[in-house]
Computed example of a mutant assay.
Amino acid sequence: MTWWEWLLDACGALLLLCVLYGAGLIVRRRLLSRNGGTFELSHRYRMDTPERGWVLGLGRYSGERLEWFRVFTLSRRPKRSWRRDELKYDGRREPLGAEQASLYPDHLVIRCQSPQGPVELAMSVSSLTGFQSWLEARPPGTDWNRVKGSGPS
């Protein structure tokens, strides 16, 4: 076999791997959305540098949890997960500077507080409406005084 035949074989194998990876991402997305709809949800993974650290992903509500999955991985496990009773919505803002290129178009940055510290997520306006509804729709028997922090002194 000559060198160019080896090169063609290597290119063909590389192309096959890329096609299989793409098909794997499509199948994974279908499997994730089977247990409840997914929506585009980016997460600011590193908060040490302003306007940086965003990772594109998918969000899914799973009972009392918001699960976050990276877009370009084949894993079916969420990379991050937050319990509903641990998240407190803290406001929203428009993406700034480099964030506009890092996030999906027309997404807003929202800030939440959790026991582990601040959490920044980016989602569309319609997804934000669903997120706020999900946060407010706590199950029956929830101690609203404890949740809102306005319990008796």
Rank of each mutant, 00 (worst) to 15 (best):
S81D: 01
R34Y: 11
S114R: 02
V109P: 07
R76M: 07
W144C: 02
P139F: 07
D48T: 09
H43P: 03
R44D: 03
Y61E: 08
P140F: 03
A23S: 15
R146S: 09
L56F: 06
W54M: 11
D90Q: 12
P115V: 02
W6L: 10
V119M: 00
L56D: 08
K148N: 12
L58R: 02
I26G: 13
T49Q: 15
R84H: 02
D143K: 03
P140L: 12
G12C: 08
I26W: 11
G149S: 12
L56N: 13
G59H: 07
G24Y: 11
A122Q: 08
M1Y: 05
P105Q: 06
R84V: 03
W68Y: 15
C18A: 14
R70T: 08
D106V: 01
L20G: 11
M1T: 11
R70F: 01
G59F: 07
H107W: 03
Y45S: 15
R93I: 04
R34N: 08
W3L: 07
V119H: 00
G141E: 12
Y104K: 02
W134P: 02
V109C: 13
V147D: 08
R44M: 05
S153E: 15
G24M: 07
Q100M: 14
R83I: 05
Q113W: 06
E136N: 14
P118R: 03
L32H: 05
E40S: 13
W54V: 03
Q132W: 01
Y21E: 11
Y104I: 01
T2N: 14
W144T: 10
R83C: 04
W54R: 02
